[in-house]
């Protein structure tokens, strides 16, 4: 894989708290152009919060975030034009039709209506959901919605992508298409942040894995590096080890014993 040495994301000592509860306790990382970062961690570790801060959805943080070499706190929001985002919880104006929603999003990113319409329609068709393009999003199945969100994040040909559980609800074939899209995008020099709880997928697609635990980075490196450091076979096991979780066997058997009670 060719690595261009341009730094796209640079986070220094990022801290964030909600009231007295601190979510991020000093996260620092650098991401170079073309990397696919597997961004993992247990529930509540602060993955989504990091992404939301970078995107400007969350404010009032401490530390410094530089995207494409510019500090995002300076009020200039041009950098958002180069970002695509698929949120974990897909809240959309689902009383609109696919066409109405996607062209609106395209126009928000500065595309012309006709271009946005053409791109959205073609991408929907390629993703196998062309027939619902003119239907209300409310009537979509979970997979269709997810495809719509993926498309809405890519319409403006962004440089940096944040995918939060993007394959949620997709069927196996669509997942294969999506993986292919990701690897081709990365070859084109797009940088991808990929958050997921499905460890096998993260293990396979990521060029580098960052594990967040209790608002701090617990591990950072390629899968091979993590394996050497932790002497474990799969990413799932590494995940369990690094987050200090080893009670699954006991919890499982207690669960089943309660199930058996009648």
């Amino acid at each position: 894989m060719k690595m261009m040495e341009e730094v796209i994301v640079e986070i220094t000592d990022l801290k964030k708290n909600y009231g007295s509860k601190s979510v991020l306790n000093g996260v620092s990382l650098q991401v170079k152009k073309g990397e696919i970062i597997g961004y993992i961690g247990p529930n509540g570790a602060g993955k989504s919060t990091t992404v939301k801060i970078i995107l400007g959805i969350e404010e009032n943080y401490f530390g410094e975030i530089k995207l494409f070499g510019h500090d995002i706190s300076d009020g200039n929001i041009d950098y958002k034009k180069k970002i695509g985002y698929v949120p974990e919880i897909a809240e959309v104006y689902d009383n609109l039709t696919g066409q109405e929603y996607l062209t609106f999003i395209g126009e928000l990113y500065g595309l012309d209506l006709d271009l946005a319409d053409y791109k959205a329609k073609s991408l929907m068709e390629l993703f196998g959901v062309g027939e619902v393009y003119y239907s209300r999003i409310a009537s979509y199945s979970k997979g269709m919605r997810q495809k719509l969100l993926i498309i809405s994040s890519l319409l403006h040909n962004p440089e940096l992508l944040f995918f939060d559980e993007p394959i949620n609800g997709l069927d196996a074939n669509s997942v294969m298409i999506f993986k292919e899209i990701m690897s081709q995008l990365s070859e084109q020099g797009k940088t991808i942040f990929y958050s997921s709880h499905i460890m096998d997928v993260v293990e396979k697609i990521s060029s580098r894995i960052i594990l967040l635990h209790d608002g701090k980075i617990a591990a950072d490196g390629t899968f091979e590096e993590l394996k050497q450091q932790n002497t474990k076979g799969s990413l799932e096991q590494i995940f369990n080890q690094l987050t200090g979780f080893n009670e699954h066997r006991e919890l499982g058997s207690r669960f089943v014993s309660v199930v058996k009670e009648m």
Binding site: L55, I77, I83, E91, L108
Partner: peptide
Amino acid sequence: KYKGAWIYRVAPIQ
């Protein structure tokens, strides 16, 4: 569907 309004924050609205 007010929750869809996150796009206003994410999009580059000058």
